[in-house]
Design a binder for these strands. Structure first.
Length: 935
RNA sequence: GCGGCAUUGGCGGAAUUGGUAGACGCGCCAGACUUAGGAUCUGGUUCGCAAGAGUGUAGGUUCGAGUCCUAUAUGCCGCACCA
């Protein structure tokens, strides 16, 4: 009976569907376990073999937990809002919803073929009104909340209003608009004029994590700084809790470090410096309070609000020119060009202790967004200040004994203080503490913790996103009532920005809010009395992905994001698998979002994802042919890879990407190559043995000749012709082989290239294993058979518990060959092997289970338990010979020196008897375990 | 610059608590079967003729190190004018 994987897989996928085998209920006596994949953005290109890697791993974990008797929630959905569909819409006029719908359909088909145990009834998509109504709902909660610094949690804004009414005399006198403006400074979701990353090419703003080195992460377009009125989320209020929360969750150190880095906590001090001739002082932030006596100048960020206060009349023209120049530089230019620039403002600060006058400069090396946007410069001990001081010829005062600052600054935080009055002689660490105490005491500063984490900009000038449930009355935002949600995305005739520069929603005719009727009406009716304009921006990509894991728990609920019962049952994601690229985006935002909902009592866990694994990227493995471009080249002669470094070809070949799908084991299918593209129709080859078909024209497949291709690891992309489609692999080898081979490729967390070479080995294994299930026999398994089985149980259980899936496949292979050697056909053994295989290769395991006489599903069987007693080595059988060695089990205490063990071994009567007449060449000792003797 | 991860045969990679390094697969070699093979099956395969050597390099701890410690090199990833 052949291993007909196509029939087997089709059959079981249908059986599972028909019996609703993977439907999960929220009411179960079983322990819950929640396994989640990061849901994909359904791109037009479909899945390539890299995408399912994490899904396969999580599917194995989910099926294993299920076999262990847990009630497993393992859903899949789609992050359906996104730029590509919108860009496509702008180009073609095709509504993004149609494109997205089509892509999702394709994704689902591809995923189903791989045999994942998703409960598709629980699927969500972020662009579905029944989903985004809860994204809008969460936004409204944030708008209606503020962060209570004392309680360190979000509270309803009504509590703040109550407090203001009671405590603040001004509150009552304010107009409604003024009151709203005041509240805006506290809301978790707030409108503010902020400096944003503006990408002109995309026509939208981007969050910090969407920009890298001054370019947009999507598309790679230049990004510039611009001040705009934007919705923001007060993520920074949660900085400390986001930091502390990391200690409670089981993530890798590298990922936690990335987040710690991003949050960027630094302990320091704020200090007040008076300005000469003015009453109001200004504040700076420093982590080096100890260096106060080394301050020789002050620097303000160009965007700092202090700048206007300190410009003297003489310097005004020069400073304005500088500010103007800074404004027009993009972030990228500023980073690329690290020359020292700056300008003197004409004002002086007063040193709070010595009373000396210190010149105040403006320079773009100081960032407006960090600390107070102003610094005290200590050139001797900060390299940036040092560069500035040298450029402008400012004095440098060394503060640490023995530090040579003639060539460069001394940035290290160690050594004894000098030139520092009452700090002299102290170690830096102690000096910092003493200075902090001093300034606090004298009222010239205070201890302060700063975070690098900024508030998230939450507006996008785009069409294909969640609309804000917000309308504007007297320029102030008001919420569309909760019971009117969702606010549906309106139809527009065009998806690009309007001619007067409004976001695409500016095209929508029906986009105004009638406050009385509580409905969306035509915008021509706007009278700013009853009918008001609605927000034109939409929410960013991370909005929909920030709470989707909660929605899976209760996806059909139309009363709440998730019911209390459902949330109490599932609680949090036990295992989350996804790419590391979300470290500072999605994984920060969803932790923030979850903590916010936790504060308001909507969810019962403070952290959303208990255990997280980052699967590595699967890179492409490209193949090349080498076109001869030397003397007499015709342009259609291709040289086999093994010959390109030999004369006359050396240095005269040009590598050309060739479709990996017409190359097998690096051997080119030359017929397919000639048909691949018109250019290669008449291609001629020099084969690996040096023969060629110029002298000897050959049409058809040469059987004795091989054209060897070169290869390289590159990103998997269409242009490199190295994309491998999982559908093709499933078609050719089956889903079970694909699943096992993806795990076999290497450790889950490591990046590795996809290499179809080698998949035959895994496929062969499945076929060999399958052959053992021809006709299972009854009868008691032998001790050897049970030993093989229990070794396998132990290994596979350990592997899955440790997420080390790649070593499981070899374990199966070893067990298979051991059992084959024993000619084992015992049902009792085979059925257990089928259960062990079920998480990895569910279809074939199901068929095997049936072959063993079962009528139920193997996916509902129970996970076998290892009986260690079968693993104890049977001393009766030893000594045995293998590989020219003789093995004894030999008891001796650990920590016994080697030579003593050797003596004991040779003196032992069994050993002596066995070795009589042989010459001992070498003794390999593992104290307390095994002794190998080479004779 | 700061932080993290990695480095083992021709290749991908095993080695779980410090205990026989190179499991398993690919590739390669030999054989079997076959009209044929880029199919299938069986056996071999770290290097070296050998003694021996051997987990990027140099030290250290230990009876014993791929594994622990110190230094160093190379590569990958994250952050980066963050005061």
């Amino acid at each position: 009976m052949d291993y007909n994987f196509q029939a087997i897989e089709k059959k079981w996928q249908q059986e599972w569907d028909n019996s609703k085998a993977y439907e999960v209920k929220n009411n179960s006596d079983k322990e819950p376990y929640y396994v989640l994949d990061m849901f994909p953005y359904p791109s037009g290109a479909g899945l390539h073999v890299g995408h399912p890697l994490g899904y396969i791993a999580s599917d194995i974990a989910a099926r294993y937990k299920r076999l262990q008797g847990y009630n497993v929630l393992h859903p899949m959905g789609f992050d359906a809002y996104g730029l590509p569909a919108e860009q496509y819409a702008i180009q073609t006029g095709q509504h993004p919803e149609i494109t997205t719908e089509k892509n999702i359909k394709r994704y689902v088909e591809q995923l189903r073929k791989i045999g994942f145990c998703y409960d598709w009834n629980r699927s969500v998509r972020t662009c579905d009104p029944s989903f985004y109504r809860w994204t809008q709902w969460a936004f409204e909660q944030m708008f209606n909340s503020y962060y209570d610094a004392d309680k360190q949690q979000a509270r309803p804004i009504s509590e703040l209003i109550a407090r203001l009414e009671e405590e603040d005399a001004n509150w009552q006198k304010m107009s409604e608009k003024e009151q709203q403006e005041t509240l805006m400074q506290y809301r978790i979701a707030y409108l503010a004029d902020t400096k944003v990353n503006w990408c002109p090419k995309l026509g939208t703003v981007l969050a910090n994590d969407e920009v890298s080195e001054g370019l947009s992460v999507r598309g790679g377009y230049p990004v510039e700084q611009r001040v705009m009125r934007q919705w923001c989320l007060r993520v920074s209020a949660y900085a400390q809790r986001l930091l502390e929360g990391l200690d409670k969750i089981d993530w890798t150190d590298s990922l936690k470090d990335t987040q710690r880095n991003w949050i960027g906590r630094s302990e320091g001090a704020e200090m007040l410096f008076a300005i000469k001739g003015q009453d109001e002082p200004f504040t700076i932030f420093t982590t080096r309070a100890d260096t106060l006596f080394g301050v020789t100048f002050m620097v303000l960020a160009p965007e700092s609000e202090y700048v206007q206060r300190v410009i003297s009349d003489e310097q005004r023209a020069e400073v304005e020119a500088y500010l103007d120049r800074c404004r027009h530089r993009t972030e990228r230019e500023r980073i690329a060009d690290r020359q020292v620039t700056g300008v003197f403002t004409g004002s002086y600060a007063i040193h709070p202790i010595t009373g000396k006058e210190i010149p105040i400069y403006v320079s773009d090396y100081v960032l407006a967004g960090y600390g107070t946007g102003a610094i005290m410069a200590v050139p001797a001990h900060d390299s940036r200040d040092y560069a500035f001081a040298r450029h402008f010829n400012l004095p440098v005062i060394p503060l640490i004994e023995g530090a040579d600052v003639s060539e460069q600054s001394f940035d290290a935080k160690e050594g004894k203080m000098i030139n520092s009055d009452f700090l002299n002689g102290l170690e830096v660490k102690d000096a910092i503490a003493k200075m902090k105490a001093y300034i606090t005491d004298k009222g010239i500063g205070r201890v302060k913790v700063n975070y690098r984490l900024r508030d998230a900009i939450f507006s996008r000038q785009r069409y294909w996103g969640e609309p804000f449930p917000v309308y504007y009355k007297d320029d102030m935002p008001y919420l569309i009532p909760e019971d009117c949600l969702p606010l549906r995305l309106p139809e527009v005739k065009e998806f690009k920005p309007t001619e007067d520069g409004q976001p695409p929603l500016g095209h929508a005719q029906k986009w105004a809010w009638d406050e009385k009727k509580k409905e969306v009406v035509d915008k021509s009716l706007i009278d700013n009395k009853n009918v008001f304009p609605i927000e034109l921006c939409t929410m960013p990509g991370f909005a929909g992905s920030s709470a989707y894991y909660l929605r899976y728990m209760d996806n059909l609920n139309d009363k709440a994001l998730v019911s209390r019962e459902a949330n109490n049952y599932w609680r949090q994601v036990n295992l989350y698998i996804g790419g590391t690229e979300h470290a500072t985006g999605h994984l920060i935002y969803s932790r923030f979002w979850n903590k916010f909902l936790y504060d308001l009592g909507y969810v019962c866990e403070d952290e959303p994802f208990k255990k997280l694994i980052n699967q590595g990227m699967i890179q492409g493995r490209s193949n090349f042919v080498y076109r001869y471009i030397g003397e007499g080249a015709t342009g259609n002669l291709y040289i086999s890879y093994n010959l390109i470094d030999t004369p006359p070809y050396k240095g005269h070949v040009q590598p050309i990407h060739v479709d990996v799908n017409i190359v097998k084991n690096d051997i080119l299918d030359v017929v397919a190559f000639r048909q691949w593209m018109p250019d290669y129709k008449d291609a001629q080859f020099v084969y690996s043995d040096g023969t060629n078909d110029v002298d000897n024209p050959y049409i058809g497949t040469p059987t004795d000749k091989q054209y060897i291709c070169g290869w390289a690891v590159e990103k998997m992309s269409k242009s490199m012709y190295n994309v491998v489609n999982p559908d093709d692999i499933v078609e050719r080898y089956g889903a079970d082989t694909l699943r096992m081979y993806e795990m076999f490729l290497g450790p889950l967390e490591m990046s590795k290239p996809w290499d179809t070479n080698g998949i035959d080995g895994v496929h062969r294994f499945l076929r060999k294993l399958w052959n053992m299930y021809e006709s299972p026999s009854d009868g008691e398994p032998t001790r050897d058979e049970l030993r093989s089985l229990h070794k396998l149980i132990k290994k596979i259980t350990w592997d899955i518990e440790h997420y080390s899936f790649n070593t499981s496949i070899p374990a199966f292979m070893i067990a298979q060959s051991e059992l084959a050697a024993l000619k084992c056909t015992k049902r009792a053994v085979l059925e257990q092997v089928a259960v062990l295989l079920a998480p990895y290769a569910p279809h074939i395991a199901e068929e095997m289970w049936h072959q063993c006489g079962h009528t139920d599903f193997v996916i509902d069987a129970s996970w076998p338990v290892c009986d260690e007693s079968y693993l104890v080595e049977d001393t009766q059988k030893y000594p045995v010979q293998f590989n020219g060695k003789v093995r004894f089990t030999f008891e001796c205490p650990k920590n016994t020196p080697k030579d003593e063990v050797e003596k004991m071994v040779l003196a032992h009567e069994d050993t002596a008897k066995y070795l009589a007449g042989s010459t001992v060449k070498k003794i390999i000792v593992v104290p307390g375990r095994i002794v190998n003797i080479v004779i």
